[in-house]
Write a protein that binds this DNA or RNA. Sequence first.
DNA 1: CACGATACCTTGTGATGCAAGATACTATTT
DNA 2: AAATAGTATCTTGCATCACAAGGTATCGTG
Lengths: 108, 108
Amino acid sequence: MTESLQIQLKKGVLEMCVLALLSKGDNYAYDIASRMADAVGMGEGTIYPLMRRMQNDGLVTTYLQESGSGPPRKYYKITKEGAQTLKNQITDWLAFEAAVHKILGELT
Amino acid sequence: MTESLQIQLKKGVLEMCVLALLSKGDNYAYDIASRMADAVGMGEGTIYPLMRRMQNDGLVTTYLQESGSGPPRKYYKITKEGAQTLKNQITDWLAFEAAVHKILGELT
DNA sequence: CACGATACCTTGTGATGCAAGATACTATTT
DNA sequence: AAATAGTATCTTGCATCACAAGGTATCGTG
């Protein structure tokens, strides 16, 4: 394990979900936030700082595009590095899931 | 949803694991910490505050017992309320897992 | 008696999830 | 034309928390 799975969990799971979404097509934060809010209860106040962090880490790039229905959207596009990170995070996530299930044991 | 699944994740997953361990038998923090360190990379500095929190929340009770090999151990015993909390947390956890898998989709 | 292992606990730091609010553009209603 | 509602961006402040590092005390062994 490169670093504590716990760290992976905390820093990684939301990032992983966002990267997974972006791997299926470019998207903008507001829409990502809506989807994530439905799926795992994450709001805008969490998404925007997260997107900036991911951009700083080189996992995504951005470009502006007019929308016709509101202010221009800032689209995020996953990078090669982001795709690799996603791959690693999925591996770590599956390992973490397995570890938790082992602890839960026959309680499930 | 009672509260954001995200909060459940953060505050709940480690607690859930500890409660699951305790549901199989009383244990003391040092040993719990060792097991959790192996399983999900959590150390003592995380466990001790967590145990106190859980005690304050009425999820566990404690009793002291001599060990013969070091200082006396403070054993933790899960309460009825703790068992119920564990049940709820497992339900939430499985729902969260399902949500993440849905997002990951065919990427897994 | 010194040392390592066991076992407890505290402090300080850095991240971060989130609610709430600020800003601004467009379309629809009044 | 003014007001409202929806879209979309981002910031601030708060509370929480995992973790590393350090501190204390007990026991057995060399």
